[in-house]
Design a protein around this nucleic acid. Structure first.
Lengths: 128, 128
DNA sequence: CTTGCCTCTGACGTCGGCGTCAGGTCCTAG
DNA sequence: CTAGGACCTGACGCCGACGTCAGAGGCAAG
């Protein structure tokens, strides 16, 4: 598979795929003329990489953890890193849920205000 | 309260607080000599702003939504924006939970491998 | 009055994940 | 053979949320 095809099938840009390779996240064979050749498995690999990016991991961190995630090859140190990232994600989810709840209560409250036409306090409606 | 105190009480840097003001997220009175003076409520305001940053909102978006979140002053357009951000957060939480589950299964599987000393496939242990 | 920390404005630096442009090569269809 | 797309390697640009430095004032203590 050539780079344009892989881009089309993953949603990543051609530039991004070259960048992933540069960061050691995605290997590519080369045709005699130097063009990159990807196996089918590259599609899944790219999706994994993008998922990890979306979870807030840096290129460097992803590069460190990929062998472990892909091959199951782990050292105690890598397992610690993995667990640390997992815990970070937990924390982030908790914060996001808090923020979500806050936004939602604002939406609910403000929607009610629009209907009733009266102002309100920041925490729903507890003023005298 | 002066800017250094506010920084100390919120965990934000002095530079960040000036930046928030520049972006219209945090108002400050000025002493005759030009120094910023913050009321107690600024502490809560800064925490709110940082919470929204942490949820992935940009300065511009926060500036648009703050009047609504703080005062309950909403227009239909602002409510749409709020709901859109809430939905984006929902999506992001779902992705994070998926990633978390993946990392966790890797951790579980790899920890077992370390104990048993045998390799494994990427999805737990389904190979022959 | 002076010392030393806090604060001010303005402006450039940084970092990561790419976008984009330049200049050249490759390959497939007609 | 030729044209036009896809591909290559640099290398600079970008953007947002600050960090950091420079140079100049404020302010409470001794």
């Amino acid at each position: 598979m050539r780079i344009g095809d892989l881009a089309g099938r993953t949603g990543a840009s051609v530039r991004a795929l070259r960048y992933y390779e540069e960061q050691g996240l995605l290997a590519a064979d080369r045709s005699p003329s130097g063009q990159r050749q990807y196996p089918e498995s590259a599609v899944e690999r790219v999706r994994l990489v993008r998922q990890l990016y979306a979870a807030g991991l840096s290129s460097r961190t992803i590069a460190e953890l990929l062998p472990c995630v892909v091959d199951g090859r782990a050292t105690p140190a890598l397992l610690d890193r993995l667990a640390a990232e997992r815990d970070r994600i937990d924390t982030q989810v908790a914060e996001l849920l808090g923020t979500r709840a806050r936004l939602d209560s604002v939406i609910t409250g403000a929607t009610g205000n629009l209907r009733t036409g009266r102002p309100c306090g920041p925490r729903g409606s507890a003023a005298s």
